[in-house]
Design a protein around this nucleic acid. Sequence first.
DNA 1: CGGCCCCTTGATTCTGATCAATCAGAGTGG
DNA 2: CCACTCTGATTGATCAGAATCAAGGGGCCG
Lengths: 247, 247
Amino acid sequence: MTTLILTPNLLLIRKLESVFILKDEEKKAINDLPISTLSLTADQDIVRVGDQPSRCFLIVEGFTCAYKLTGDGKRQILALYVPGDIPDLQSLHLTSLDISLASISPCRLGFIKHEDMHRLCKTYPRLASAFWRETLVQASITREWLLNIGQRDSYTRIAHLFCELLLRLKVVGLADNQKFKMPITQVELADATGITVVHMNRTLQALRTDGLVINSKTHISVPDWQKLIEAGEFDPFYLHLLKEPAS
Amino acid sequence: MTTLILTPNLLLIRKLESVFILKDEEKKAINDLPISTLSLTADQDIVRVGDQPSRCFLIVEGFTCAYKLTGDGKRQILALYVPGDIPDLQSLHLTSLDISLASISPCRLGFIKHEDMHRLCKTYPRLASAFWRETLVQASITREWLLNIGQRDSYTRIAHLFCELLLRLKVVGLADNQKFKMPITQVELADATGITVVHMNRTLQALRTDGLVINSKTHISVPDWQKLIEAGEFDPFYLHLLKEPAS
DNA sequence: CGGCCCCTTGATTCTGATCAATCAGAGTGG
DNA sequence: CCACTCTGATTGATCAGAATCAAGGGGCCG
């Protein structure tokens, strides 16, 4: 796997094509979309609950998450986003954000003005459908997380999460079958799966012992994909991919 | 509160107006939408994971839920739907369903063909946005459930769920400040909140003792709305309502 | 070198799960 | 009308997965 240097626009095209078939003129329109990039360090809020953004952003590089806090300050990470994702696409139609979005690693983001998106959607209604579809896939992932957190024990839950991440990163060419870059702390993994750090640490050790997942500060590797799939009860159906990404 | 006899079309208009301002011609277009109704008993699957429906349905009367099962047969209820909701609106753009939908009480459903929806959306792009928005609000609710299940203890969790239901039912005129009809079993409540029936039963007793919620087989009543809101850490922001429904 | 962040470990506690009955009400058939 | 059955609610006893509390440890950076 070679790391491609993609423009934000090409990345967006590639992403949409993973769930949708684009016409040439549509690709061209996306390619002409003004996208201004910005880099930021890890652990920065990008937007917060209640904000009313006038633009949305595409992740070009790095990882971000959506989160909410309870009254007593406990954090639930509601989604993890990888390059190619547009985490606040919903802000196109819901003026106020109901979540906060933050970087979990150093990131490069590409900002797209709402007005440009609206114009694009108006001119190319199929693209509007594609973006709508994107938000629906995000919702489907959230539902799977709900099943995961509501019904599966921590071991299965974590295995499932890693399966999802590997597959989603493969789609955008950022993972092979064995390994991917994912600089995420155990605190963040814990907040994403609804367990405590201590328990996350112990369960990760169990997964490591069983040869399913080996994680370092920056990378996660999966020695046995089949075994991990079984351990995580993973069925990629809910990701609504057009096809399995090439290995 | 009087129980209004609404046609499915009028119900749909009313629902969209709770989150969106409709023009007269748009109301008329919705009013002309062909909707065929069907009644069914409780605990019937309406559509199942993997189905590829060619129509979607509006709940006219009764309650339905979305659910998924884990490998070992545990059920997570992912959403509860009330009259006015279109639970499988996502099927307009995602050909295969990633969830199953079932009635949890006797229901009357209004089916709308995808082709009619697509035509409506094409002719009235603002309605497309309104429906898109609907799916985004559903997603927002799912995220709140994720926070609820991931971070809050069972007592708070259940209180929160009842707050949400009361408010959503008020929007469609099916609840006053004190009481609403909700024929839902403790098993279903347990599956919706990710706890066991036994524990649900005990926690409901605690809520009852504290004077927050009194539930019977068919109704739920809320003696003290303010206290329930506090107990459930409830903030209706995530429902993205245009305004609080009138009491 | 010291501080900081994150990972790791041990001991203990507790929320909620599991197992196992029993009970109450609604509907059914004789 | 009453025994029978079924589903859903309730209760008690016990167990376990995960939380909590508390303390090190290791690598990185200024």
